[in-house]
Each structure stands twice: as structure tokens, then as C-alpha cells.
Design a protein around this nucleic acid. Structure first.
Length: 288
DNA sequence: GGGCAGGTGTAAT
DNA sequence: ATTACACCTGCC
């Protein structure tokens, strides 16, 4: 048993909202001694964390690597301009978000591995969170490196590219199998260099991502936002579409493209955060 | 058990 | 340039 390490001040973070916000599919919750604990997989590390009133705690493992990985993942410690309080203060100057953010506050955009985000969000198309989570878990179990404790790393590009069709089918990917496999081959063969996209301008990143099979507007925006930190990105899924139509267009129908244009114009560099709050609110309050 | 939810690709207008 | 439909699985 390791001594818990305080990673950072919580800085307005709401851990559960953040990990359950549909950005990531690699965390599990369990009850533990008064506070819930989350176990997640970041790269090759299996980490257990918990949020207390005084901050975010690393429960295990007690290593520098785990600490570094987590701080990077959560964007901590935040630079002054990226503090959640600053972001949310700016968001609530919008009359609609002023009513939404009090319900959803504490969501932080995570910084995740582009390869994992690419495949995860191809899998996410026309799909729901529980099923996406199950597919990712099966992919990791079938093709990922074992990490102990029954945990598996996200499969490497070569592993996915070389997987048998029936193996991918057994991961419940359905008709997405050829998308995943082709995308994996392009990355494994080096024809698409995800690492190089980190330093490229957004327009160039878009061009590369949108050329991948299974990557359209929604999935592409998710990758821009969750892997490459382009916070002007604004993924429009059905929930965000409904929320924007209801709150900004008096319930009048708009195409996803119109909503995207509107949101980038209205929210600018906060578009990604605005989308996270609209999505969380819609899923919590606009069902039925 | 039929109908629906969910994004992209393709083929149609 | 927009629109209709197929794709797969889980859930009600």
C-alpha cells in the first residue's frame, strides 16, 4: 500500500464529470473509504486517483512517471490563462451558458494520446458511451500489452493493423471494422504521422484527419479537441445540436454545419469548453 | 420483437 | 449543394 500523493490543487475540477464526459473511455469507478476512486489507463500506466476537497490525489503507483503522466493528462498545474475558474468565468458571460455552467461546472478538457483518440472516436461514430467503452476494452484485451491487474494498454498501431478480421469483429466494432483497420494501417505504415500533427497548424491537421476513413466532421473535431488541444474545435453530435437549437435558435432546426459555424463565431477559443458544457447539460437534462 | 438511437460514406437528386 | 439511405449493436 502506497502513501497517497497530492498531485495538485483541484482548481475547480470535478473529477467525475470530467472522466465521465465522453472524452475518454478508459476509467472505471469504485467506492473506496468515503471517496470514490477512479482507475484508469494512461499509456502503459495503470493509475488510481481520487478527488478530495483539498485536491487531486494519486493513490497508486507512487512513481514519478505516473505523476508526470497524470499532470500532463489533466493539464496541471494550469497556467493562469488555462485555470478552470478563468475559463468558466468567461463562459458565463454568455446568457445561455450562465444557466448551464452552474449545473456542469468542473469539466476539464484532457490531453490524450492522438492515436488512442483517433481510434476511439472512429469507434464512437453512430455509437453510445457504454458500447464504445466495451469495444475499447475488448480491443485492449485482445491486442494490447498486458499491464498487470487485468489491465491492458491501448493496442499499438501495428497490432490493430495486423489484427484478424474476426478479432476486430469480436470487439463489437460492427461495420466500423474496415475504418479502424484502414486507419491503423495508414498510421502503422507511417503514411500518416500523428506526432507530426502536434506542431502543425490547425488547417493542416484537419486536412490529414479528414482524409482518414471513418473520420467526418464530428469525429475530426473530437480529435482536434481531445488530442491536439485545439480548443476552437466544436464537435456537433445530436445532443449538442439539440441544445444549440433549443437555446440559441428558439428550437428551430439547423444543420450541423450551421451550428458549427455559429459556435466558432460565438465562442471562439472557448468553443471546445462551451461544447463540453452543452453536451453534459443536454445529456443530463434533455433526455426524453 | 420491431423500432430506435447514433456519425460517416456513398449514391442519388 | 443538399438529401436519402445503409451500416451494427444494444436497449426498450
Amino acid at each position: 500500500l502506497t502513501v497517497p500523493i497530492r498531485l495538485a490543487a483541484a482548481d475547480g475540477l470535478h473529477l467525475r464529470r470530467t472522466l465521465d464526459s465522453g472524452q475518454t473511455f478508459r476509467w472505471r469507478w469504485e467506492a473506496g473509504g468515503g471517496t470514490d476512486q477512479a482507475t484508469g489507463i494512461i499509456g502503459r500506466q495503470v493509475v488510481r486517483i481520487a478527488q478530495q476537497v483539498d485536491g487531486l490525489w494519486l493513490l497508486s503507483p507512487d512513481t514519478h512517471e505516473a505523476r508526470r503522466a497524470l499532470l500532463r493528462y489533466f493539464g496541471m498545474p494550469a497556467a493562469a490563462s488555462a485555470r478552470l475558474g478563468t475559463i468558466e468565468a468567461a463562459l458565463v458571460t454568455d446568457r445561455v451558458l450562465a444557466r448551464i455552467v452552474p449545473v456542469t461546472r468542473g469539466i476539464r478538457l484532457l490531453t490524450q494520446d492522438p492515436w488512442e483518440v483517433l481510434i476511439s472516436f472512429i469507434v464512437s461514430q453512430n455509437n453510445n458511451i457504454p458500447k464504445i467503452t466495451r469495444s475499447i476494452e475488448r480491443l485492449a484485451r485482445a491486442l494490447g500489452e498486458p499491464l498487470g491487474e487485468g489491465a491492458y494498454a491501448f493496442p499499438a498501431p501495428a497490432a490493430l493493423a495486423g489484427a484478424q478480421h474476426r478479432t476486430l469483429r469480436s470487439c463489437l466494432l460492427g461495420y466500423r471494422v474496415p475504418y479502424v483497420r484502414t486507419a491503423a494501417r495508414l498510421v502503422a505504415e507511417g503514411r500518416v504521422d500523428l506526432e507530426a500533427l502536434r506542431t502543425m497548424p490547425e488547417a493542416a491537421v484537419r486536412e490529414t484527419l479528414w482524409a482518414l476513413p471513418g473520420v467526418g466532421d464530428k469525429v475530426g473535431e473530437c480529435i482536434l479537441l481531445f488530442a491536439f488541444g485545439h480548443q476552437t474545435a466544436f464537435p456537433v453530435d445530436v445532443w449538442v445540436k439539440r441544445a444549440v437549437e433549443r437555446f440559441y435558435f428558439q428550437g428551430r432546426p439547423r444543420t450541423p454545419k450551421q451550428i458549427h459555424i455559429f459556435a466558432r463565431e460565438r465562442f471562439g477559443p472557448l468553443a471546445g469548453y462551451a461544447q463540453q458544457h452543452l453536451f453534459a447539460f443536454a445529456r443530463e437534462r434533455m433526455r426524453s
